[in-house]
């Protein structure tokens, strides 16, 4: 922000000029790299809960898993998985659309993704209400709620990011160049991570 009325000489030199452009020593965008590193540490956060899961299930090795009398709604969770996984495709579609300057496609894709994510979260909460055991019911209850809850919290954060992206998409802020659609790409990367993580959670908790 160079002010037009700089006095002549060196007087205006120190305060008002901005920093020199840094030299790009890598081709990857900084924000994209940042979110990838962040996801790495998110994976490790999940890993700590999976470690607890491993100890409770494999090392303690209870007689039955899930405990007798507990029936996990595998079918509903499976349908929910399909819902969440399909939202990965819609967010990818949105990104491709804006790369081709297709604003309608962008809005459609982002809107669909948001709705699918919200549906997932709603079904999950509904499952909590009807499942018949609580987080206090033994180590099984704790790790079930611990892992699905941790994941649910991530879906919630992802949805927040997607909300912002939706708002800006409707205001027409994005464009085909990468620096103009980072606001779609970065939440999208995070969303893919949330999806893949769900598949891991689903398989460990419900399937095996």
């Amino acid at each position: 922000m160079e002010s037009a009325s700089l006095p002549v000489g060196h007087a205006g030199e120190h305060e008002h000029h901005g920093p020199p452009d840094f030299h790009r020593s890598a081709r990857i965008d900084q924000t994209v790299l940042g979110i990838l590193i962040f996801i790495l540490s998110e994976i490790m956060l999940f890993a700590s809960f999976f470690a607890a899961y491993f100890f409770i299930r494999v090392v303690v090795s209870p007689d039955s898993w899930p405990p007798a009398g507990v029936e996990l709604p595998v079918l509903i969770a499976g349908i929910n998985t399909v819902i969440l996984v399909s939202s990965s495709f819609t967010v990818h579609y949105a990104l491709e659309a804006i790369k081709h300057n297709n604003h309608r496609g962008l809005r459609l894709g982002l809107g669909m993704t948001w709705l699918l994510g919200a549906t997932f979260l709603f079904i999950q909460l509904n499952e909590y209400v009807h499942i018949g055991f609580s987080a206090r019911d033994g180590a099984f209850g704790s790790i079930f709620y611990g892992l699905t809850g941790l994941h649910g919290a991530h879906v919630f954060v992802g949805l927040l990011l997607l909300t912002f992206a939706n708002i800006r998409a409707w205001r027409g802020h994005f464009g085909p160049e990468q620096k103009n659609h980072l606001g779609v790409e970065v939440p999208g990367i995070y969303w893919h991570f949330v999806d893949i993580m769900w598949i891991v959670v689903f398989v460990t908790i419900y399937v095996i």
């Binding site: 590193i37 790495l40 540490s41 998110e42 490790m44 956060l45 890993a47 700590s48 809960f49 470690a51 607890a52 409770i56 987080a135 206090r136 033994g138 180590a139 209850g141 704790s142 790790i143 709620y145 611990g146």
Partner: peptide, 26 residues
């Protein structure tokens, strides 16, 4: 970035045990 999430996870679990009565280590 690789290891610190593990202490976060551990302290979350202890906090959940303390505040919500969950049982990871009992």
């Amino acid at each position: 970035v690789g290891a610190t999430p593990f202490i976060a996870g551990a302290q979350f679990m202890v906090l959940f045990e303390r505040a919500l009565g969950m049982n990871f280590f009992q």
